[in-house]
Protein backbone atom coordinates (compact mmCIF):
# COMPACT_ATOMS: atom_id res chain seq x y z
CA UNK A 1 0.00 0.00 0.00
CA UNK A 2 2.75 2.42 0.97
CA UNK A 3 4.56 1.50 -2.22
CA UNK A 4 1.50 2.34 -4.31
CA UNK A 5 1.14 5.75 -2.66
CA UNK A 6 4.85 6.33 -3.05
CA UNK A 7 4.83 5.45 -6.76
CA UNK A 8 1.79 7.59 -7.36
CA UNK A 9 3.29 10.58 -5.58
CA UNK A 10 6.66 10.41 -7.26
CA UNK A 11 4.90 9.66 -10.55
CA UNK A 12 2.96 12.89 -10.21
CA UNK A 13 6.22 14.73 -9.61
CA UNK A 14 8.00 13.44 -12.72
CA UNK A 15 4.70 13.57 -14.63
CA UNK A 16 4.28 17.21 -13.68
CA UNK A 17 7.69 17.85 -15.16
CA UNK A 18 6.70 16.07 -18.39
CA UNK A 19 3.54 18.13 -18.44
CA UNK A 20 5.41 21.43 -18.17
CA UNK A 21 7.82 20.39 -20.91
CA UNK A 22 4.87 19.33 -23.04
CA UNK A 23 3.14 22.68 -22.48
CA UNK A 24 6.20 24.33 -24.00
CA UNK A 25 5.80 22.19 -27.09
CA UNK A 26 2.11 23.07 -27.08
CA UNK A 27 2.85 26.82 -27.10
CA UNK A 28 5.25 26.51 -30.02
CA UNK A 29 3.04 24.12 -31.97
CA UNK A 30 -0.07 26.28 -31.48
CA UNK A 31 1.76 29.19 -33.02
CA UNK A 32 3.73 27.77 -35.93
CA UNK A 33 2.94 24.03 -36.25
CA UNK A 34 6.61 23.32 -35.58
CA UNK A 35 8.63 23.07 -32.39
CA UNK A 36 12.11 23.34 -31.04
CA UNK A 37 12.90 19.65 -31.00
CA UNK A 38 15.71 20.35 -28.59
CA UNK A 39 13.28 21.85 -26.09
CA UNK A 40 14.65 19.38 -23.56
CA UNK A 41 17.98 21.12 -23.93
CA UNK A 42 16.35 24.47 -23.15
CA UNK A 43 15.30 22.92 -19.87
CA UNK A 44 18.85 21.76 -19.32
CA UNK A 45 20.06 25.27 -20.12
CA UNK A 46 17.80 26.70 -17.43
CA UNK A 47 19.08 24.28 -14.77
CA UNK A 48 22.71 24.66 -15.74
CA UNK A 49 22.61 28.44 -15.96
CA UNK A 50 20.96 28.78 -12.58
CA UNK A 51 23.62 26.57 -10.99
CA UNK A 52 26.45 28.30 -12.85
CA UNK A 53 25.19 31.71 -11.76
CA UNK A 54 24.95 30.48 -8.21
CA UNK A 55 28.57 29.35 -8.40
CA UNK A 56 29.50 32.75 -9.73
CA UNK A 57 28.12 34.26 -6.58
CA UNK A 58 24.90 35.63 -8.03
CA UNK A 59 22.07 35.23 -5.52
CA UNK A 60 19.38 32.84 -6.68
CA UNK A 61 16.73 35.51 -6.59
CA UNK A 62 18.61 37.30 -9.36
CA UNK A 63 20.15 34.22 -10.97
CA UNK A 64 16.88 32.42 -11.62
CA UNK A 65 15.23 35.27 -13.57
CA UNK A 66 18.49 35.75 -15.43
CA UNK A 67 18.61 32.08 -16.41
CA UNK A 68 15.00 32.23 -17.57
CA UNK A 69 15.60 35.40 -19.58
CA UNK A 70 18.69 33.93 -21.22
CA UNK A 71 16.75 30.82 -22.20
CA UNK A 72 13.99 32.97 -23.69
CA UNK A 73 16.60 34.66 -25.88
CA UNK A 74 17.87 31.22 -26.84
CA UNK A 75 14.30 30.39 -27.90
CA UNK A 76 14.09 33.53 -30.02
CA UNK A 77 17.29 32.59 -31.79
CA UNK A 78 16.10 29.04 -32.41
CA UNK A 79 12.90 30.29 -34.05
CA UNK A 80 14.66 32.83 -36.18
CA UNK A 81 17.65 30.75 -37.23
CA UNK A 82 16.60 27.12 -37.15
CA UNK A 83 12.83 26.95 -37.50
CA UNK A 84 11.53 29.80 -39.67
CA UNK A 85 13.77 29.22 -42.69
CA UNK A 86 13.00 25.49 -42.71
CA UNK A 87 9.30 25.34 -41.86
CA UNK A 88 7.54 24.69 -45.15
CA UNK A 89 4.26 23.04 -44.38
CA UNK A 90 3.08 20.10 -42.34
CA UNK A 91 5.33 17.39 -43.73
CA UNK A 92 8.62 19.27 -43.67
CA UNK A 93 11.10 18.04 -41.10
CA UNK A 94 14.05 20.33 -41.84
CA UNK A 95 13.34 22.30 -38.67
CA UNK A 96 13.41 19.08 -36.69
CA UNK A 97 16.93 18.23 -37.85
CA UNK A 98 18.22 21.77 -37.47
CA UNK A 99 16.95 22.09 -33.92
CA UNK A 100 18.35 18.66 -33.06
CA UNK A 101 21.71 19.86 -34.39
CA UNK A 102 21.61 22.97 -32.24
CA UNK A 103 20.62 20.82 -29.29
CA UNK A 104 23.68 18.63 -29.87
CA UNK A 105 25.89 21.70 -29.98
CA UNK A 106 24.41 23.03 -26.78
CA UNK A 107 24.86 19.67 -25.05
CA UNK A 108 28.47 19.48 -26.14
CA UNK A 109 29.12 23.08 -25.13
CA UNK A 110 27.70 22.50 -21.67
CA UNK A 111 29.61 19.26 -21.24
CA UNK A 112 32.87 21.08 -21.90
CA UNK A 113 32.22 24.22 -19.89
CA UNK A 114 30.07 22.92 -17.06
CA UNK A 115 31.60 19.51 -16.72
CA UNK A 116 30.06 16.13 -17.28
CA UNK A 117 29.32 15.34 -13.65
CA UNK A 118 25.73 15.66 -12.52
CA UNK A 119 25.02 18.49 -10.06
CA UNK A 120 22.01 19.80 -8.28
CA UNK A 121 20.59 23.05 -7.02
CA UNK A 122 19.97 23.45 -3.29
CA UNK A 123 16.44 24.14 -2.17
CA UNK A 124 15.24 25.03 1.33
CA UNK A 125 12.29 22.72 0.72
CA UNK A 126 14.46 19.64 0.29
CA UNK A 127 15.29 19.38 4.03
CA UNK A 128 12.82 17.04 5.68
CA UNK A 129 10.37 14.90 3.78
CA UNK A 130 6.73 15.01 4.73
CA UNK A 131 4.82 11.80 5.11
CA UNK A 132 1.61 11.05 3.23
CA UNK A 133 -0.04 7.70 4.01
CA UNK A 134 3.33 6.28 4.94
CA UNK A 135 5.04 7.54 1.79
CA UNK A 136 7.70 10.19 1.98
CA UNK A 137 8.03 13.21 -0.28
CA UNK A 138 9.95 16.47 -0.10
CA UNK A 139 7.90 19.66 -0.06
CA UNK A 140 9.88 20.94 -3.04
CA UNK A 141 8.79 17.93 -5.07
CA UNK A 142 5.18 18.87 -4.55
CA UNK A 143 5.95 22.19 -6.20
CA UNK A 144 6.28 20.42 -9.55
CA UNK A 145 2.75 19.08 -10.00
CA UNK A 146 1.38 22.22 -8.37
CA UNK A 147 3.26 24.35 -10.89
CA UNK A 148 2.00 22.24 -13.76
CA UNK A 149 -1.59 22.83 -12.72
CA UNK A 150 -0.98 26.53 -12.05
CA UNK A 151 0.72 26.99 -15.42
CA UNK A 152 -2.17 25.26 -17.10
CA UNK A 153 -4.62 27.70 -15.54
CA UNK A 154 -2.40 30.61 -16.48
CA UNK A 155 -2.01 29.49 -20.08
CA UNK A 156 -5.69 28.79 -20.39
CA UNK A 157 -6.50 32.30 -19.26
CA UNK A 158 -3.82 33.75 -21.52
CA UNK A 159 -5.13 32.05 -24.65
CA UNK A 160 -8.75 32.63 -23.73
CA UNK A 161 -8.77 36.25 -22.74
CA UNK A 162 -5.79 38.23 -23.95
CA UNK A 163 -5.33 39.63 -27.44
CA UNK A 164 -1.78 38.31 -27.54
CA UNK A 165 -2.99 34.83 -26.64
CA UNK A 166 -5.72 34.86 -29.27
CA UNK A 167 -3.27 36.10 -31.87
CA UNK A 168 -0.72 33.43 -30.99
CA UNK A 169 -3.21 30.70 -31.77
CA UNK A 170 -4.66 32.43 -34.81
CA UNK A 171 -1.38 32.59 -36.70
CA UNK A 172 -1.05 28.84 -37.08
CA UNK A 173 -4.69 28.26 -38.01
CA UNK A 174 -4.85 30.84 -40.79
CA UNK A 175 -1.57 32.73 -41.16
CA UNK A 176 -2.80 34.76 -44.11
CA UNK A 177 -5.98 35.85 -42.38
CA UNK A 178 -4.00 36.65 -39.24
CA UNK A 179 -1.78 38.98 -41.23
CA UNK A 180 -4.88 40.64 -42.65
CA UNK A 181 -6.04 41.34 -39.10
CA UNK A 182 -2.89 43.33 -38.48
CA UNK A 183 -1.09 40.57 -36.62
CA UNK A 184 2.62 40.41 -37.31
CA UNK A 185 2.88 36.67 -37.80
CA UNK A 186 6.66 36.53 -37.53
CA UNK A 187 6.72 38.50 -34.32
CA UNK A 188 4.12 36.21 -32.78
CA UNK A 189 6.19 33.19 -33.73
CA UNK A 190 9.21 34.71 -32.01
CA UNK A 191 7.19 35.51 -28.91
CA UNK A 192 5.80 31.99 -28.73
CA UNK A 193 9.25 30.43 -28.88
CA UNK A 194 10.57 32.83 -26.28
CA UNK A 195 7.65 32.05 -23.99
CA UNK A 196 8.00 28.30 -24.47
CA UNK A 197 11.72 28.47 -23.79
CA UNK A 198 11.21 30.56 -20.68
CA UNK A 199 8.74 27.93 -19.52
CA UNK A 200 11.25 25.19 -20.30
CA UNK A 201 13.95 26.95 -18.31
CA UNK A 202 11.53 27.38 -15.44
CA UNK A 203 10.85 23.62 -15.52
CA UNK A 204 14.59 22.98 -15.51
CA UNK A 205 15.16 25.20 -12.50
CA UNK A 206 12.19 23.68 -10.71
CA UNK A 207 13.59 20.22 -11.31
CA UNK A 208 17.21 21.09 -10.55
CA UNK A 209 17.01 20.24 -6.83
CA UNK A 210 15.22 16.96 -7.53
CA UNK A 211 16.86 15.38 -10.54
CA UNK A 212 20.49 15.31 -11.51
CA UNK A 213 21.52 18.26 -13.61
CA UNK A 214 23.88 17.41 -16.44
CA UNK A 215 24.41 18.26 -20.07
CA UNK A 216 22.51 15.20 -21.23
CA UNK A 217 19.49 15.49 -18.93
CA UNK A 218 17.40 17.13 -21.66
CA UNK A 219 17.27 14.42 -24.28
CA UNK A 220 14.85 11.99 -22.64
CA UNK A 221 12.85 14.69 -20.87
CA UNK A 222 12.34 16.49 -24.16
CA UNK A 223 11.41 13.36 -26.04
CA UNK A 224 8.94 12.24 -23.41
CA UNK A 225 7.48 15.73 -23.18
CA UNK A 226 6.93 15.73 -26.92
CA UNK A 227 5.37 12.27 -26.83
CA UNK A 228 3.04 13.42 -24.07
CA UNK A 229 2.04 16.44 -26.13
CA UNK A 230 1.23 14.48 -29.27
CA UNK A 231 -0.46 11.61 -27.45
CA UNK A 232 -2.73 14.13 -25.73
CA UNK A 233 -3.37 15.92 -29.02
CA UNK A 234 -1.37 19.06 -29.60
CA UNK A 235 -4.36 21.37 -29.33
CA UNK A 236 -5.52 20.63 -25.80
CA UNK A 237 -3.55 22.01 -22.85
CA UNK A 238 -5.72 20.33 -20.23
CA UNK A 239 -5.31 16.96 -21.96
CA UNK A 240 -1.58 17.50 -22.11
CA UNK A 241 -1.29 18.00 -18.35
CA UNK A 242 -3.48 14.98 -17.60
CA UNK A 243 -1.46 12.81 -20.01
CA UNK A 244 1.78 14.07 -18.49
CA UNK A 245 0.68 13.03 -15.00
CA UNK A 246 -0.58 9.69 -16.28
CA UNK A 247 2.69 8.96 -18.06
CA UNK A 248 4.73 9.87 -15.00
CA UNK A 249 2.68 7.60 -12.74
CA UNK A 250 2.80 4.76 -15.27
CA UNK A 251 6.57 5.04 -15.47
CA UNK A 252 7.02 4.97 -11.71
CA UNK A 253 4.88 1.87 -11.36
CA UNK A 254 6.78 0.02 -14.08
CA UNK A 255 10.04 1.09 -12.55
CA UNK A 256 8.89 0.11 -9.08
CA UNK A 257 7.88 -3.38 -10.09
CA UNK A 258 10.53 -3.79 -12.77
CA UNK A 259 13.55 -1.60 -13.53
CA UNK A 260 14.64 1.49 -15.43
CA UNK A 261 15.19 -0.18 -18.79
CA UNK A 262 11.81 -1.86 -18.61
CA UNK A 263 10.32 1.56 -17.80
CA UNK A 264 11.57 2.94 -21.11
CA UNK A 265 10.58 -0.14 -23.10
CA UNK A 266 7.02 -0.33 -21.79
CA UNK A 267 6.58 3.42 -21.48
CA UNK A 268 7.56 4.12 -25.08
CA UNK A 269 5.70 1.01 -26.25
CA UNK A 270 2.46 2.19 -24.67
CA UNK A 271 2.91 5.67 -26.09
CA UNK A 272 3.46 4.37 -29.64
CA UNK A 273 0.40 2.17 -29.39
CA UNK A 274 -1.71 5.06 -28.14
CA UNK A 275 -0.50 7.27 -30.95
CA UNK A 276 -1.44 4.64 -33.50
CA UNK A 277 -4.86 4.12 -31.99
CA UNK A 278 -5.55 7.84 -31.67
CA UNK A 279 -3.59 9.69 -34.34
CA UNK A 280 -5.36 12.94 -33.40
CA UNK A 281 -4.46 12.44 -29.76
CA UNK A 282 -6.46 11.26 -26.78
CA UNK A 283 -7.93 14.70 -26.20
CA UNK A 284 -7.52 16.20 -29.64
CA UNK A 285 -10.54 16.94 -31.72
CA UNK A 286 -10.51 16.65 -35.46
CA UNK A 287 -10.02 19.99 -37.10
CA UNK A 288 -13.41 21.66 -37.32
CA UNK A 289 -13.45 23.36 -40.66
CA UNK A 290 -16.01 23.60 -43.38
CA UNK A 291 -15.01 24.58 -46.84
Amino acid sequence: MTAIVQYTLSGLVIGGLYAIVALGFYIMWSAVRAVNFAHGDTLMLGSVLSIALMWAGVPLIVGIPLAIAASAVFGLLIERIAVRPLNHGPSSVGWMLSTIAIGLMLEAFVTVTFGADPRSLPSPLMGTPISIAGAGIFPHELLVPASAVALLALLDGFYRSTMLGRAMRAISQKPVAAGLMGIDVRRMALISFAAASALGAFAGILAAPIIQVSATMGLLLGLKGFLVAIIAGMSNARGIVITGFAYGVLERFIEGFGNTALREVLGFGVMILLLLMFPNGLFGQREVNKV
Binding site: M163, A170, K174, L180, M181
Partner: peptide
Protein backbone atom coordinates in the same frame (compact mmCIF):
# COMPACT_ATOMS: atom_id res chain seq x y z
CA UNK B 1 -0.25 43.56 -41.10
CA UNK B 2 1.05 47.06 -41.77
CA UNK B 3 -1.49 47.88 -44.46
CA UNK B 4 -4.36 47.12 -42.09
CA UNK B 5 -3.10 49.84 -39.78
CA UNK B 6 -3.26 52.27 -42.69
CA UNK B 7 -6.87 51.42 -43.45
CA UNK B 8 -6.65 48.72 -46.13
CA UNK B 9 -8.37 45.50 -45.08
CA UNK B 10 -9.22 42.34 -46.99
CA UNK B 11 -11.77 39.58 -46.61
CA UNK B 12 -9.81 36.64 -48.00
CA UNK B 13 -11.06 34.03 -50.44
CA UNK B 14 -12.62 31.05 -48.73
CA UNK B 15 -13.39 33.18 -45.64
CA UNK B 16 -10.50 31.83 -43.57
CA UNK B 17 -12.14 32.18 -40.19
CA UNK B 18 -10.13 31.00 -37.20
CA UNK B 19 -12.05 27.76 -36.95
CA UNK B 20 -10.95 26.68 -33.48
CA UNK B 21 -11.73 30.02 -31.88
CA UNK B 22 -15.12 31.43 -30.95
CA UNK B 23 -17.11 33.83 -33.09
CA UNK B 24 -16.48 36.60 -30.60
CA UNK B 25 -12.74 35.90 -30.48
CA UNK B 26 -12.66 36.06 -34.27
CA UNK B 27 -14.21 39.52 -34.12
CA UNK B 28 -11.78 40.59 -31.41
CA UNK B 29 -8.90 39.41 -33.56
Amino acid sequence: HRLVRQGLAMVPEGRQVFAEQTVEDNLRL
